[in-house]
Design a protein around this nucleic acid. Sequence first.
DNA 1: TCTGGGGTCCTAGGACCC
DNA 2: TCTGGGGTCCTAGGACCC
Length: 426
Amino acid sequence: MSGPRSVFALVDGNNFYVSCERLFNPRLEGVPVVVLSNNDGCAVARSNEAKALGIKMGEPWFELRELARRHPIQALSSNYTLYADLSARMMSILRQFAPRQEIYSIDEAFLDLSGQPGNLTDYGQAIRQRVSQWIGIPTCVGIGPTKTLAKLANHIAKKRPEWAGVCDLTAAAPSAVEALMARIAVAEVWGVGRRLAERLQAQGITTVLDLQRLDPGLARRRYSVNMERSVWELRGRPCLPLEPITPPRQNILCSRSFGRPVTTLADLRQAVVTYASRAAQKLRQQQGATRVVEVFIQSSRFRSPFYGPSVKVPLAAPSDDSRTLARAALQGLERIYRPGWSYVKAGVELQAIQPRDTGWTADLLAAPDTRSAPLMRTLDAINSRMGAGTLRLAGAGIDPAWAMNRGRLSPAYTTRLGELPQACAR
DNA sequence: TCTGGGGTCCTAGGACCC
DNA sequence: TCTGGGGTCCTAGGACCC
């Protein structure tokens, strides 16, 4: 096993998307900035100034317009190409600070600091310093004996200025850790969301310390095995290992809200072919093959009645061919489409994914398609070189009416212009 | 008028079997 | 009148994460 005592660090970028945008646009400094979700729908990242105005995570932009009239709020469409590029740079810097790293999300990584000599708070400051100097992204560092405690430490480092961006719970006295836990709401624990927080509070468990003191067996019986793990982790016993290798996805989903409502089957067919192709491309990237294609369409959830059917289409044999998956998705669409509805969203999800090339029973009734693999390789190669969407299935449509709105998009500062998917189409 | 996208895991309950 | 019981597998739905 690992050393005598585990130490984890969680490093994350502060207001990551906003920080990325600010790197290339100094006018965004010192003013409230929000980055909007696809279709410019909701705020998914907020600068400190925006948070100070009371803007909540996920708040719809149209509800913020009034606020924006009274304050100079800068709202930007999300530019994932830019964020992914800066994320990769940040992760490679962090990798220099630990023998093992788990990339947990676009802006967060766990580092294994077990056995790291010296003062870990100083080490955390060195990490922040280098990321800031090399790519200009501000970060916070939380350090603890378990991942859950590292997460909690990161929360403390972020919320309380006196920690100066680094909180090392392994260096704090047990009484000091308890005092901190007693002041933090149980909802801040990693794995405790809104619903569980409500249930816990109804049982009188309102702070992190209350949860830490809950009997683990009771936590399991009354809630779940995950809640029991959270209790142990808060007590300093690791239950969640560092996972340096990202396992292949078990499901691949591609879905988007439309730029405007769609009523016709023809438009939905274009969208479904587009999403199936994108999902197939991701599937090939992980050398997978799928046996089930699920397709869904939805009317607005904010209008009654709601219509949101879905259907799973099993394949005769596992496949990674865009054409096969698109055909299956279209078959499913025909079965669930009802005229007379206004659809705002569609999606294609690949399920029952398995490794390609290993142990699947070939479809005995069909002649093997020897041209599929080279064709798909060529498709992916062209799209990788010339930009996503350069080569598409005929059914996907050209400059479709339902495409996303991204009226506030910043330029692709760090990558080729051609890799900005929507900009070319306009 | 406007309300994101992409994942994972767990549990409850039904189907099925002996 | 009265309707086994336990194990396993699968699926749908819920809850969580960022």
